[in-house]
């Protein structure tokens, strides 16, 4: 897989996202922010009230994750993706503030979300749901940056290396879920 994978360093630029196509395998290095349902709700409420966000969204990638607690000596516990479609209601608001990618599992994402990804030039990457012990090996750092009271639903900042993912939605309207069914349904 590594030979054909595209290496990307986050934060992402418009140029980075413009060369990605549905079905591309990527390896991500750099910063990911971790947030799921409850943190998304707070971020979006904050934006609606005109408040200052705990981090600058420009070029960033959010990983939909609520990890298990680390065992002694671990950087992070098991850290696979959660279902992305639950964040469809919130993600376009964050994309309007510069969010360049989301990583999760599941889909297809809502029609509104898919349209917003084209408008704001943002990618949906899938990483394998339930491969959480394997994915955890790609984390070099993990810290809570806000909303610690939410426990596993806090806002995290991670440093990752060779984080494996697949481009599901590109900025041109490509959707690997639709393509997959078209190719394999009998």
């Amino acid at each position: 897989m590594d030979a054909e994978a595209i290496r990307l360093t986050t934060p992402l630029t418009d140029e980075d996202v413009s060369r990605l196509r549905m079905g591309d395998r990527v390896l991500l290095d750099g910063i990911l922010y971790g947030a799921r349902d409850a943190a998304h709700k707070r971020l979006v409420e904050l934006i609606e009230k005109g408040g200052k966000l705990p981090f600058d969204l420009a070029g960033q990638v959010i990983y939909y994750v609520g990890p298990t607690p680390p065992k002694p000596g671990q950087v992070i516990g098991s850290a696979g993706p959660t279902t992305a479609t639950r964040m469809d209601k919130y993600a376009p608001v964050l994309m309007a503030k510069g969010l360049k990618g989301t990583i999760g599992k599941g889909g297809p994402r809502s029609k509104e979300m898919r349209e917003a990804m084209m408008v704001y030039r943002s990618i949906y990457f899938l990483t394998t749901g339930g491969a959480s012990a394997l994915i955890a090996r790609h984390f070099r750092r993990s810290e809570v940056v806000a909303y610690a009271d939410l426990g596993p639903e806090a806002l995290f900042r991670f440093e990752v290396e060779d984080f494996p993912a697949i481009v599901v939605n590109d900025i041109y309207g490509g959707d690997l879920f639709e393509e997959g069914i078209r190719r394999y349904a009998r």
Partner: peptide, 13 residues
């Protein structure tokens, strides 16, 4: 399995 959804829904048997 003939639906074509496949592993993670990305297509397959």
């Amino acid at each position: 399995n003939e639906s074509g959804l496949g592993p993670m829904g990305l297509g397959g048997r």
